[in-house]
Amino acid sequence: MTAVELKNVNKQFPGMSYKALDNVSVTIEEGEFITILGSSGCGKTTLIKTINRLYEPDSGDIFLYGKNIRDTNPVELRRSIGYVIQQIGLFPHMTVRDNIATIPKLLKWDKAKTDEQVDRLLSLVQLDPAEFRNRYPSQLSGGQQQRIGLARALIADPKVMLLDEPFGAIDAINREKLQNELKKIHAESHKTYLFVTHDIREAFKLGTKIIIMNQGKILQYATAQEIICKPADRFVKELIQTTTDVSKDYVSGGEGI
């Protein structure tokens, strides 16, 4: 089943010499973990932000489970999509519990259900509910904060998750741990993830399929192995060569994920 489909989507920001999205068409199947790879300014963040209507495309259509998102109220659309950003954006005046309960509060869940789900999500992101529930964001490390950011996005069980460089500001050791946990969470959930990153290793490690973008265009959309064996053009080829260990992993049998 198709989860997300973009058809001829264009977006140009004022003052930019090229389009942020240049006639982008892509079909994403349900259950995939798509990583979107590219350097800054290539349009990868713009792409996911058009899916939850933080940006409106200049032209083209986007479908979520067959339904044109233009026909859905943006506020309701966003409540049904998980969204995680690099700056995390936890609310400092709220406890961890209230932060995670942001969407339940918008959806008016009752307290018992909310508390139960908050605890479930805390356990899912490997934080002890009893210890962390009543803390404030300022009392958490960066890695812990982003775990809360993940829990907050996952709580209403969204079918689609949008993650905009969520681990970009986290130290290498914690990033590795978080990547492994996210991969596990995804594998158990059968949901569709779109994960923006500029880190090639991260993109190849997490993605069931990878979108490589440059100057608003999708250069290649394929599995890691296909990209290594058959890079679509010189840009992709050069990109892979910058990280030799990635290509080694895949060429010698595809292990290493």
Binding site: V75, E76, L77, R78, Q87, G89, F91, P92, H93
Partner: peptide, 27 residues
């Protein structure tokens, strides 16, 4: 109020009014 909080709030489906009353005003 930090822009990232406004983006997170909007991205999670807060209306403009909810963003103002629940996030911006308390802060």
């Amino acid at each position: 109020v930090d822009k990232s909080m406004l983006e997170a709030g909007t991205g999670m489906g807060m209306s403009h009014w909810q963003l103002v009353t629940r996030v911006q005003l308390p802060l």
